[in-house]
Design a protein around this nucleic acid. Structure first.
Lengths: 168, 168
DNA sequence: CAAGATTGATCTGTCAATCTTC
DNA sequence: GAAGATTGACAGATCAATCTTG
């Protein structure tokens, strides 16, 4: 992280010891490289970004392929503004369409089109294969459980922190 | 990931079972949210992005505060082009300066300035505190070791995959 | 007027093309 | 001519401001 003591930071900071430092670097590398690899895979194989793919995947899990923009933003960890730009793109490509929620005109529904379903169906196998290759198949089911638990603990910490908030 | 079977992807794909799916989602959430939280923390407390901070932190670890651009790119997981833009910014702010490597003019050295050291020293305590709060202090040292090992295994897989390559 | 959503300005990252040094 | 580095054009994300509906 920061072996900056010699630079004059003399405060009473609990610096990371070597063991902690190594663990932290491993995790920092993970969150960078794994993300990058999956972005590349989707870009190459499907011409979609990670978030575009996952937005469509989430829609496909709804019985009617429909979700409110604000709900979709929440499940994809995206800001509403980012999602709006992104859905504009997906709309231009014909994979999603938008309409005001009939039940409450303040909401906007994002709806996966038939072309969207087909795109997803064509893209999913390669993506799942990559997730297996890079993550799932690297572990026993016990280890996978550990990994899930440990990851969950960090995410809980984030949720409890002052940075839990996603952008506007 | 993609429960898209019903959308027509009938190929012989090994889809994720519920257990695997849950583990994968936990990791996918982790790599997104943790990164985001740390970006926010550094932005708020130091006005630096994650990668700007780490570029300076790596420089500070060298005895002379100096690293070749290509080496700095490698250790920060950045492309040379990204790093170049980024160092231009750091240079404008007075935290880093550049000069051709005296030993071999093809290389460019990035050098942390005194102002850069001071900036880092001022920024490090809050960042380390965040890393502790969100990650390190959430675990026993045994668990931290596990986390490091599990993360390392994924990174190894990425390195062995066709997506290991970083961009130009 | 508050919640949901969109838009436009701006900044950062990527990609391709270029420049320099050996 | 190839490795290291930079540059400029473009795509995508953020932030603040705005619009719309209840």
């Amino acid at each position: 992280v920061a072996r900056t003591r010699r630079a004059g930071a003399t405060a009473n900071v609990r610096w990371l010891d070597p063991e902690e430092e190594r663990a932290w670097r491993a995790i920092a590398t993970l969150i960078h490289r794994l993300r990058w690899a999956l972005e590349c895979q989707l870009e190459e194989d499907a011409g979609l970004s990670f978030i575009e793919y996952h937005a469509m995947a989430r829609l496909s899990e709804e019985p009617d392929g429909t979700l409110r923009m604000s709900d979709l933003a929440a499940v994809t960890n995206a800001s509403l503004s980012r999602l709006s730009h992104l859905v504009t793109r997906l709309e231009r490509w014909g994979f999603v369409r938008r309409r005001p929620d009939p039940l409450n005109g303040r909401f906007t529904q994002a709806i996966l089109t038939d072309a969207g379903y087909r795109k997803l169906a064509a893209s999913a196998p390669a993506h799942v294969a990559a997730v297996r290759e890079l993550v799932v198949d690297a572990f026993t089911s016990t280890e996978l459980g550990q990994l899930r638990a440990l990851s969950g603990r960090i995410v809980d910490r984030v949720d409890a922190s002052r940075w839990k908030q996603l952008p506007t």
